[in-house]
Simulated scan of single mutants.
Amino acid sequence: MNLSKITAIFDQLRQGVVEETLIGRGVSGFTLFPVRGRGNYFDSYNDDHLVDHVQLEVYVNSDDARDVAFLIVEAAHSGVPNEGLVSISPVDELLWIHDKRTATDKELSLQR
């Protein structure tokens, strides 16, 4: 199996740009959800100091992982300090629920 999971946390104002960029490059599926956290930057106006962001998760062929990660970095970048981060992790196995089988790296390759 040659799959990777990309996890990105970025400013919620960049969500539309990130989505359009991934879809435009053939990334067929990803998951987005709201998250709150605190890093180097914190919201000094709120008592809990937490900042609202978006977390994205996408599974891709490992050969494409670095390219997809940099697509996200470019799309999410706005030039402000501490914008977020992107990680790439190996995946041991990924299973499709709908047909009870292992996903393949070819199914999760960028469409070129």
Rank of each mutant, 00 (worst) to 15 (best):
L71N: 15
A76D: 08
V51Q: 07
G84M: 04
S78Q: 12
R38S: 06
G84T: 03
V27I: 02
E83M: 12
Y45W: 03
V18A: 09
E83H: 11
V54M: 15
Y45I: 02
G26W: 06
P90D: 11
I9K: 01
P34I: 12
D52G: 03
D48W: 09
N61W: 11
H98F: 07
N2Q: 07
E57M: 10
E107R: 13
L95K: 06
A76F: 05
E74L: 05
N61E: 14
L108E: 01
T104N: 13
D105I: 14
L94I: 08
N46R: 13
L22P: 14
H77G: 00
S87K: 01
T31W: 00
S44L: 04
V51S: 09
T21Y: 12
A75E: 04
E20V: 05
V60K: 15
L32N: 05
W96H: 05
R25S: 13
P34H: 09
V73R: 14
N40Q: 11
R36F: 08
A8N: 01
Q15S: 08
D63A: 12
S28G: 14
E20Q: 14
Y45Q: 11
D105M: 14
E57L: 15
S89F: 07
V60Q: 10
I97P: 03
Y59P: 00
D43T: 10
G16T: 07
S89K: 04
I72A: 06
V27E: 11
D99L: 09
L108C: 02
G84R: 00
D52N: 00
V86W: 05
D67K: 13
E57T: 11
R66S: 09
T31L: 11
S62N: 05
Q111R: 07
E57R: 10
G16A: 07
L22E: 13
T102V: 15
R112H: 02
V51Y: 10
Q111D: 09
L22G: 13
L50E: 14
A103G: 11
D92M: 10
D11G: 09
E19W: 05
S89H: 07
L108Q: 05
G84I: 01
R101L: 06
D63R: 09
L50A: 12
H77C: 11
R25K: 09
E19N: 15
V51K: 11
R14L: 12
V54E: 15
S28L: 04
V18I: 04
D92G: 10
F70P: 12
V35I: 06
D63M: 13
N46S: 09
E107P: 07
T102C: 15
